[in-house]
Design a protein around this nucleic acid. Structure first.
Lengths: 247, 247
DNA sequence: TTCATGGTTCGATGCTAGCCGAACCATCGC
DNA sequence: GCGATGGTTCGGCTAGCATCGAACCATGAA
């Protein structure tokens, strides 16, 4: 009666709070040690070690040994994508995080999703690239000729990206915006460009903090209008039963 | 330390085999009764009732009462999308379903994902639409002017679709092909068109069975090359440890 | 009204899996 | 070689939850 791969084992893996927190901590693409992940999850070292063994067995994370440390990272961008999508479900599901503090606002504005830019600015970026005809197509979001010129000038080694097995362009569903932002090798390259140019820096959470000048430069480079003012949190339109058919 | 919505509760919901099976049974977009879902999950009626109550509380499914039956359906296409994405992870994770029987082959070839066409033919469809310039853009996969003409001739009431809050075009990640197929209101309309024209019918599983004539008509209408012969199952390139960095 | 069927609620049971402390192994610096 | 630090393994405890039978409600048919 069942069809396709069995989702239950994987979902159960993501369903434990400790493991979920560890994975969330890895969502920025960095590799973390067991101790760091234990702290992120709020469990002791042995417990974390056990969880990580399971995640590794399921190939959701990959480990690398360096000296007496073991560094864990997500095994691929697709894991990050599923996590983002689950956050989307979790949000509309009513499991709204009440803590809409300044940190949350920062995350909604611009954050690192695995290795590319997400959040409001991330979505705006993809919009802008399309509007200018730099990126087109729907499946793998192919680069146009103009886009190739543009990004070459931006300093991206397209030839190298295209040799890899990872798609150059790929849409990734954004939990806060509920729209696509740009992932893939190009998405990663753009984020690298942002950091290299010191337009912004990654803080200890997943938020990406732009400098004022950097934000202006970023918007200018990609032809984006500045970020709209965020509406007052707590004044959500759907208070008790948000009967939104979201997609 | 946590950021964004908490995924663990939702994921835990999907992590129980009984619930996962029920959701999988609902993946074709149909509404099923509690008894049917209980059978699909292989549990007794009280157990199923309890599970469904939880899923409903989490707004993953929605219920509708008709007479003395209660019909459950997925609460939206986004739920189906997350399920498809999880299947993708489950597959590469090593939880490969060994039962690569004829039914599985049929599912890979063409199946119903919530309310639109998925599988090899679904991916080919999106490819074809793009190649012919009927669909373009990357975010919401907008229809081109030619596309509007085309689908109007195909019998789709675009004005009606665009009035709804659901996006007309939307990519949905395919677990068997690991590429996007076309979802959204237009995806649903195309599937309706296929069924109305008797090009194929939905069997009791999620497989979509084309008639020989219907398949030819489908390929012809959307300018697709016929489906490539499926390679021998069991002759997978990655036997023990598929170390594929998939995305 | 009365019976039959679909669904829910309740209570009891049993299993699973997360958690920690303690002991153990590996690596680094001295 | 010796301590110190990072990780893993083991054993035992506990809590949560899936499961089912039985009793109970609701709807439709006779």
């Amino acid at each position: 009666m069942k069809e396709g791969p069995a989702i239950a084992p994987v979902a159960a893996l993501l369903g434990d709070p400790a493991r979920a927190n560890m994975l969330a901590a890895l969502m920025d693409g960095r590799a973390l040690t067991v101790s760091e992940l234990a702290q992120a999850a709020g469990v002791t070292l042995p417990t974390a070690s056990g969880h990580l063994a399971k995640l590794e067995a399921a190939r959701l994370v990959a480990a690398e040994k360096q000296g007496r440390h073991r560094y864990f990272r997500l095994s691929g961008p697709d894991v990050a994508q599923v996590l983002e999508a689950l956050m989307g479900l979790a949000q509309r599901t009513g499991a709204v995080r009440v803590r809409t503090g300044p940190k949350d606002a920062a995350l909604r504005s611009a954050r690192v999703c695995y290795d590319h830019l997400a959040g409001e600015r991330g979505v705006a970026l993809l919009d802008g690239l399309e509007r200018q005809g730099l990126v087109a197509g729907g499946d793998d979001l192919a680069l146009t000729d103009q886009g190739r010129d543009f990004f070459t000038r931006f300093g991206v080694d397209l030839a190298r990206l295209e040799k890899g097995r990872r798609p150059v362009c790929r849409g990734c569903l954004d939990w806060s915006e509920r729209r696509l932002h740009l992932g893939g090798a190009l998405g990663a390259a753009i984020l690298s460009g942002i950091v290299e140019r010191r337009w912004g820096r990654r803080d200890e959470s997943r938020a990406l903090v732009f400098t004022p000048d950097g934000l202006e430069a970023f918007n200018g480079t990609f032809g984006l209008s500045p970020e709209p003012p965020t509406e007052q949190p707590g004044a959500e339109p759907a208070p008790a039963a948000p009967r939104i058919r979201v997609l």
